[in-house]
């Protein structure tokens, strides 16, 4: 009886191994015929997968020698504040300029520079009463202070202008001297979807690093 059971077990294991061999042959054939397509499909799926739970938010630091940030804030996160005493504004500053970001405060254009990097910092916010409705009251000589976790940067307004929203040259993106371009929609009290922008230009006059 014991002998019989052993024989049954051996025969069953042999058949299971045969099944594995059959499936190995099929997998090998699939790999030969469609291997690259399957790899491509897997990499495409992984490309559109974004695991937000694993990200560790790094502290933003400025390298004072190279004048470049050693690590950048995550897109969509608040990384500072922008204060304009002339209009009693003390607003959160976010990295990024999507409509979802602008819902919450001042957005920073990702195509510009960060405060302290020696180039043009471009920021924008809605012209609602909550944000920059009174931007026109900010005149040359007024100060705008951006405070981040790596430093405090004071800018002095020297010019303002009104341009169509499509005029990208008005943003004056450059890296020879640090300036702040802050804009909002114009006209301020209009009804509907505005297509002009009210812009203030400011130069960096003071910086303190933490």
């Amino acid at each position: 009886m014991r002998n019989q059971n052993t024989n049954i077990l051996k025969a069953t294991i042999k058949d299971i191994i045969v099944a594995f061999i059959c499936i190995a042959i099929i997998f090998f054939t699939i790999y030969i015929v469609w291997g690259s397509e399957i790899s491509l499909a897997i990499s495409l799926v992984n490309k559109i997968s974004i695991d937000t739970s694993k990200k560790v938010l790094e502290e933003v630091k400025l390298n004072s020698v190279t004048n470049k940030l050693e690590s950048y804030p995550e897109y969509g996160t608040k990384y500072g504040t922008i204060k304009i005493d002339a209009i009693n504004a003390d607003l959160p500053l976010y990295y990024g300029d999507t409509l979802a970001i602008l819902r919450n405060g001042v957005g920073q254009f990702s195509g510009g520079y960060f405060p302290g990097e020696g180039g043009t910092v471009v920021c924008m916010a809605h012209n609602s009463t909550k944000y920059l409705r009174e931007l026109a009251k900010v005149t040359p000589g007024n100060k705008i202070i951006i405070t981040t976790n790596y430093g405090e940067f004071t800018y002095e307004v020297f010019d303002t202008t009104i341009v169509p929203q499509t005029e990208m040259e008005a943003l004056k993106i450059q890296n020879e001297e640090e300036m702040l371009v802050l804009y909002t929609c114009y006209p301020f009290n209009s009804i509907g979807h505005t297509t002009s922008r009210y812009i203030t230009y400011s130069k960096l006059v003071d910086s303190k690093y933490f």
Binding site: D15, I16, V18, A19, F20, C22, I23, I26, F27, I42, V45, N46, I48, S49, I50, D51, T52
Partner: peptide, 28 residues
Amino acid sequence: GIGLLATGLFSITPKIISELKMDINNIM
């Protein structure tokens, strides 16, 4: 029986591959 066993092994493979190599739960 061998046929069904082999087919069964093949059928569970996509789930195993997806757990090891693909991040389906974070598709955006």
